[in-house]
Simulated assay, not measured.
Amino acid sequence: MITEPKLENRHEQHYVAIRTYTTMQELDTAIQQLRGEVFAWLGKRGVAPAGAPFLRNLVIDMEALLEIEVGIPVASASSTDGRVTAGVLPAGQYASLVYAGWDRGIEANAALLDWGVQKGLMWDAWETEKGRAFGARLMSFLTDPNEEPDQAKWETEVAIRLADHQPW
Rank of each mutant, 00 (worst) to 15 (best):
Q33C: 03
K130P: 01
Q93M: 14
V16N: 01
A52E: 12
E26G: 06
A50I: 03
V117T: 15
Q32E: 13
F141P: 01
I18L: 05
I106T: 14
K153M: 13
V98M: 09
I18V: 10
I72L: 03
I106Q: 10
E63D: 12
L66Y: 12
G92S: 10
D150K: 08
G46R: 04
G43F: 05
A77D: 00
G92F: 11
L66D: 10
E148F: 08
I106K: 13
K6W: 09
I60D: 07
V84M: 00
N57I: 13
G116M: 14
D61F: 13
D81K: 00
A50S: 15
A91L: 07
P73Q: 09
T20C: 11
S79P: 00
E129T: 15
G116F: 11
Q33G: 01
Y15G: 02
W126P: 04
I68F: 03
Y99N: 07
W123M: 07
H11G: 04
I60Q: 12
T20S: 12
L7E: 03
I106L: 14
G92Q: 04
Y94L: 05
E8W: 06
A48S: 11
H11K: 14
F54G: 11
A17V: 06
F134I: 06
V74C: 02
Q13P: 09
R35F: 04
V47L: 09
L65R: 14
D144R: 04
E12Y: 03
P53T: 03
S76R: 08
Q32G: 12
F39W: 06
T23H: 12
K119R: 14
R35G: 05
H14F: 07
R137M: 05
E26N: 15
Y94C: 07
M24G: 09
M122N: 10
R19T: 12
E107Q: 14
I31W: 05
L65A: 11
I31T: 07
A17R: 07
M24P: 02
E67A: 08
L55T: 12
P145R: 06
V98R: 12
Y99A: 04
I72T: 05
T85W: 02
P49V: 01
I31D: 05
P49T: 03
I18N: 00
V74G: 02
E69W: 05
K44L: 13
T22G: 01
F141W: 08
F134A: 04
G116L: 05
Q25T: 13
E26F: 10
A152E: 14
M62R: 15
L7Y: 05
T128W: 11
L58P: 02
T143R: 08
S140D: 06
T22E: 03
H14V: 00
L89T: 01
A50P: 03
F54P: 10
T143M: 10
A108M: 09
D103P: 03
K6V: 13
A91H: 09
E67F: 02
A108E: 07
A100V: 08
V59I: 15
Q32R: 15
S140Y: 02
L42D: 02
M122C: 11
D103H: 15
N9Y: 09
G120Y: 09
V84L: 00
N109R: 09
